[in-house]
Nucleic acid binder design. Structure first.
Lengths: 139, 139
DNA sequence: TATTGTTATACTCTATAACTATA
DNA sequence: TATAGTTATAGAGTATAACAATA
């Protein structure tokens, strides 16, 4: 196939997301929800629009995503008293438990991908090359 | 971000596709159309469903895609006389000219990506790692 | 006047079922 | 009966405009 980089990148991304989807089907969790919960767990109190922007999700589309997470009792919106227009996001106690399970399931998925690559060093090489494409200076 | 491989892969793929889209906006060509024209140019006479499968596109969704390409006069469906259910796909003379222009525009895009990676050797390393994920044995 | 979250809407991709014409 | 192409349709994901509450 001709447009080598873009085409292979897309195929590989679809493969990894497919494995993610199957691995996480028991938790009924999609990649976007996984990312949101991970960020809330690591940095509680961020505003909706901050998390949306970190993930490249339009804030309008973030609403339904967050509705689902909140309806499942995993995280909640709190009116910030410094700026009462914004909602700061926090895990519920149940969400904290869920994130622990989630992390274990994630390790299973990620280890499978690392094994396909040939080990952690190869994973690091891949991440470094992807960071070059993204112009991210080492993070 | 936690789900490192999948997340970075997705971000990098979106970046490359964005560059592709901008580069090809003058030709009004999407990645899927590019792929289809490239395959028809390299292997004329394949059936619709063969090309669709090579690209991971459902044959039902291939119809509108091919309609657009045909309407632009770049390629055409021909009834195969061995099996008159199937359509074999061929470039038109105009399509052959278009594919030449397309290849030049593609080189511009691909070279920009290769430069970001740090050169052709780094591109090769990336492709090799992506092939490992895909389980493709060296191609 | 500008920003945050929200609603409504539209467009693209993708997936499935059912039809037709051929085999 | 099975297959290639087709149609219709539904679901995600994504993008924009406009509104209410608040700044």
């Amino acid at each position: 196939m001709a447009t080598i980089i873009g085409y292979k990148l897309r195929r590989a991304q679809l493969y990894v997301f497919q494995d993610f989807l199957e691995t996480f089907s028991r938790l009924k969790l999609r990649p976007a929800e996984f990312s949101v919960l991970t960020i809330i767990a690591n940095t509680p109190g961020l505003k909706q629009s901050e998390i949306a922007e970190m993930l490249g999700i339009k804030r309008a589309n973030f609403v339904a995503l967050m509705d689902g997470i909140e309806k499942r009792g995993l995280a909640e919106r709190r009116k910030a008293d410094t700026d009462r227009r914004s909602h700061s996001l926090h895990l519920t106690p149940q969400g904290t438990k869920f994130v622990r399970k989630m992390a274990a399931v994630w390790a299973e998925h990620e280890n499978r991908m690392i094994a396909r690559l040939g080990g952690p060093e190869e994973r690091d090489r891949l991440i470094e090359l992807l960071d070059r494409l993204l112009g991210t200076p080492e993070n």
